[in-house]
Design a protein around this nucleic acid. Structure first.
Length: 255
DNA sequence: ATGGTTGTAAAACAA
């Protein structure tokens, strides 16, 4: 079973690139973030032609998450149980082939100290609470998405430049550790220890060309899945294609 | 520190 996560930065703008990648890589599941697309406008027919059915949780203009998969989804959950109807669309969970998949778009945070930053920290706290109620640590659970946090300095191209900034600040990393402490491990770090592997590069200032990126997109798995994790990697290739997302897919394979 | 780019949607705003 091959599972991928990708912040596509608009599923409609990115449809050519996402379709090309799905045809080439054929993951069983692709979790997308920042679809920026209401459910009625989601290009589900285009995905069906590639063999994928879609579960969507979108809103106009901002945010939005979706899961496309070859196998059937069950127990689909859109947003946290306590969310108000107008809450930002950032979490979509589903059970696929016995695995509980939780697809999240953790808030960006803007910059340290502003309202959006505290909203991010609070959202992360609520994600941990959600995990507590959603599943037992002995189950097969996969949490993936754009976490908008680089867990360690080896996930940052220039730690001195980024020190104290949003995506790497201590409170964000602590909130991330709280989520991890539920019982998850980073699938990528099960297989690759070295630095300079990133999943996002700013569109500006030739960041991708200079590999000036951050590893902020992640696939985290419970112990029951970790023992089945055969490989994990970041696929930089689609970031080189025409009209790319600023993020690139993270992939994990399971026996 | 600033400015650099992209998407949505039609001027800012978010990232």
């Amino acid at each position: 079973m091959k599972i991928a996560t990708w912040n596509v930065n608009s599923v409609t703008a990115r449809l050519p690139v996402v379709s090309k990648w799905l045809e080439a890589e054929r993951p069983d599941v692709l979790c997308m973030q920042e679809t920026k697309c209401i459910d009625d406008k989601f290009p589900r027919e285009a995905f069906l032609e590639l063999g994928y059915s879609s579960e969507t949780f979108g809103q106009p203009t901002y945010n939005g998450v979706a899961i496309v998969s070859l196998a059937e989804c069950s127990e689909v959950l859109r947003g946290f149980p306590e969310d108000e109807p107008e809450a930002q669309a950032r979490m979509l969970a589903a059970k696929i082939e016995g695995v509980r998949i939780i697809n999240v778009y953790i808030p960006n945070g803007g910059e340290v100290g502003i309202d959006k930053y505290y909203f991010k920290l609070d959202w992360m706290k609520r994600l941990r609470s959600f995990l507590d109620s959603y599943a037992g640590a002995d189950e097969m659970v996969l949490l993936c998405g754009d976490f908008n946090v680089a867990p360690e300095d080896r996930d940052v191209h220039d730690p001195a430049l980024w020190e104290g900034h949003v995506h790497v600040s201590e409170p964000e990393r602590a909130a991330l550790e709280e989520i991890k402490a539920w019982g998850l491990v980073d699938a990528f770090r099960l297989h690759i220890e070295e630095d300079k592997h990133y999943s996002w590069w700013d569109y500006r200032a030739g960041a991708f060309r200079r590999n000036a990126g951050l590893r902020i997109d992640h696939i985290w798995v419970s112990k029951a899945l970790a023992v089945r994790c055969r490989a994990a990697w970041i696929d930089k290739e689609p970031r080189r294609w025409e009209r790319p997302s600023d993020h690139t897919p993270v992939v994990a394979e399971f026996d």
